[in-house]
Design a protein around this nucleic acid. Structure first.
Lengths: 221, 221
DNA sequence: CAAGTTATCAATTGATCGCTTGAATAGTCA
DNA sequence: TGACTATTCAAGCGATCAATTGATAACTTG
């Protein structure tokens, strides 16, 4: 009886190991970055503006919680999200907190700036099939290289104005980035509009698209 | 630029509010109980073996994180899981930790005892349609009253032997309980087998069944 | 092998968390 | 109104956590 109870406690304690990993804003930021592409420790440290030592510690915590994998690559360590499951945990937490906590909504709106026109997944597919829109991935090129929506072309946000000429002038531009809480696509649409182009953003980003693909595959199989 | 950064940090901090709520084994246990049925504070305190004050504090933390709702009911406060979203967060965390962390698997096996035959959702539906099995909910009656699988009959675990006669002797008994990490159905099957009955357990419990129903509804709509 | 890079470790500090205890509050019912 | 119950509050203590700093270890390249 006593044994039963301690086993039960041990079970919740073991689950809480993963919960604890989700309790720090820094670690969530690392998960968010890793959802785009695998990266090295000090790459992540630089992008997230933290010290290497601190970043390394957080990555080890995420690893111990089963949320990220790691692999030596010569002199550096390559960290990556631990598969579809880890991605689903992060997106579920993010979306649920956005739905349930007014403060998340508020912080997101404040970070993203003025809202712009947006299209959903099905509308995007239709538009591309009809050929009256072009899909642009405005994330940094390494992230595009690590994976992107089929049919997208890569124009990082900071090259957008310079490379406007590459975009067929008669087509609407649909931009996407890291996800619904990433400011890149919003900013891209605002700049495209300022340049006189017809533009809108895809509601979701690459991680959401990819998870949907993975889930569609496994439900077929 | 600075403003942008602080907004971005604020966003992750706001999301981490929900993450922090998932960082304590006690709170996870409360979520697990609330996934079965709404309950009052000291009901939860009694069932989870904690002091009322401590339980109340944890429930307030879960409430502040948007994971549980509460409502006054006369002299007591009725806490309930905050809808489908909160349920999905908890089940996702639980299942992902079980898949990714060996320690969770180990703790679960140790808590559940010897494995018994099990059937999946589709098999259950087939068997019930064919009429060669009877579905039994072995959870406490309050939980059955708060919601159960359509077609199930309620026989709480501690009344099982006494009420064996209620079960048609020529049918296999399929038992279910709070979920895959609840020991009731396992124990019920072992006792039924010991009594000479053909028995197996449903792989999932009521919360998983309910979430699947809710998701099916919303994907149709 | 030596120099340089990348990652981790170890020790420390201040902050936060978890739980207990005892008191205060809100609501019910005789 | 007064006794009673359920819940919350407030203070306090020990444990854990987050971040910094400086040192160490692992690996590559010249």
């Amino acid at each position: 009886m006593e044994i039963r109870q301690s086993n039960r406690e041990a079970l919740f304690e073991a689950i809480a190991v993963m919960g604890k990993a989700l309790a720090s804003p820094r670690r969530l930021e690392l998960l968010d970055l890793l959802a785009q592409a695998p990266r090295s420790v000090d790459d992540l440290a630089r992008v997230s503006g933290q010290s290497s030592a601190n970043t390394s510690q957080h990555l080890q915590a995420l690893h111990a919680a089963g949320l990220v994998d790691r692999e030596r690559e010569g002199t550096r360590m390559r960290y990556a999200l631990a598969g579809e499951r880890a991605l689903r945990v992060w997106l579920t937490l993010r979306d649920t907190s956005a739905a349930q906590l007014a403060e998340v909504e508020r912080a997101a709106r404040s970070y993203l700036g003025q809202e712009v026109d947006r299209v959903g997944r099905e509308e995007l597919v239709d538009r591309l099939r009809q050929g009256d829109a072009v899909l642009v991935d405005v994330r940094p090129p390494e992230e595009f290289a690590a994976g992107h929506i089929d049919g997208a072309r890569s124009i990082p946000l900071d090259e957008l104005e310079r490379r406007l000429g590459e975009l067929p002038p008669d087509l609407e531009v649909i931009a996407y980035c890291r996800g619904p809480f990433c400011a890149y696509a919003h900013e891209a649409v605002r700049r495209l509009r300022a340049a006189g182009r017809d533009a809108s953003r895809l509601e979701e980003g690459w991680p959401e698209w990819r998870l949907a693909e993975l889930e569609a595959e496994s439900s077929v199989a």
